[in-house]
Each structure stands twice: as C-alpha cells, then as structure tokens.
Simulated scan of single mutants.
Amino acid sequence: MKIKVLLVDDHMLVMSGMRELLEREEDIIVVGMVLKLADLQEAIETFNPHVVVMDIRLKDGNGLHWTKK
C-alpha cells in the first residue's frame, strides 16, 4: 500500500518540487496539492490522505493553528 500525501503550500514551485522528491519513493504518492487553507478541509475529505505536509506560514492563515484542530 502506498502512503497518500497531501501537500499544502502557497507557493506552487515549492509544492511541485516536494511532489517530485516524494514521488521518487516507491511507497509514496502525492494525492493532492492545496494552495490555501480555505480549501484544505475539502481536500482532506476528497483525497483521504495518510499524511499532510503543510507550510506553517500561508497567505490565508497559520498552518500550525489549523493542525491543532
């Protein structure tokens, strides 16, 4: 079984690089990429990731605050 990862960052270049690095591993698949916290809940429900890799400073909020929910 592959580990499903959801990426959250407000910089597409950063997410694209992370996706490329993560998907070099045979047991990891990036199931989605989210640019803003406003779209995070829907992405989690849609993609059902095992892991969320999230920037802590986003344009529309604080990633650390959201993780505490």
Rank of each mutant, 00 (worst) to 15 (best):
M1P: 00
M1G: 11
M1T: 11
M1N: 07
K2E: 09
K2G: 03
K2P: 04
I3R: 01
I3W: 03
I3H: 05
I3D: 02
K4D: 01
K4H: 11
K4T: 08
V5S: 03
V5H: 02
V5E: 00
L6N: 00
L6H: 08
L6I: 10
L6K: 05
L7N: 00
V8M: 12
V8E: 05
D9G: 12
D10Q: 10
D10K: 05
D10M: 04
H11K: 13
H11L: 13
M12I: 14
L13N: 13
L13G: 14
L13D: 14
V14E: 04
V14Y: 03
V14N: 05
M15A: 10
M15N: 07
M15K: 09
M15Q: 10
S16H: 05
S16Y: 06
G17A: 08
G17I: 04
G17W: 02
G17D: 01
M18Y: 09
R19D: 09
R19M: 15
L21D: 09
L21R: 06
L22H: 02
L22E: 02
L22M: 09
E23S: 06
R24L: 13
R24C: 13
R24H: 09
E25V: 07
E25A: 10
E25W: 01
E25S: 06
E26C: 04
I28T: 07
I28N: 02
I29D: 02
V30Y: 08
V31D: 06
G32M: 02
G32I: 03
M33T: 09
V34G: 04
L35W: 02
L35Y: 01
K36Y: 08
K36T: 12
L37H: 08
L37Q: 12
A38S: 14
A38D: 12
A38W: 03
D39H: 11
D39Q: 11
D39C: 07
D39E: 12
L40D: 04
Q41R: 15
Q41L: 13
Q41E: 14
A43H: 04
I44H: 04
E45I: 09
E45F: 11
E45K: 07
T46V: 14
F47E: 05
F47I: 01
N48H: 04
P49C: 08
P49S: 06
H50L: 00
V51R: 02
V51F: 09
V51M: 06
V51A: 08
V52A: 04
V52E: 00
V52I: 10
V53N: 04
M54D: 10
M54I: 14
M54C: 15
M54A: 14
D55L: 13
D55C: 14
D55Y: 10
D55K: 12
I56Y: 08
I56D: 06
I56P: 01
I56W: 07
R57V: 15
K59D: 12
K59P: 03
K59M: 12
D60T: 10
D60W: 07
G61A: 06
G61D: 05
G61Y: 00
G63I: 10
G63E: 10
L64F: 12
H65Q: 15
H65F: 13
H65P: 10
W66L: 10
K68T: 07
K69M: 09
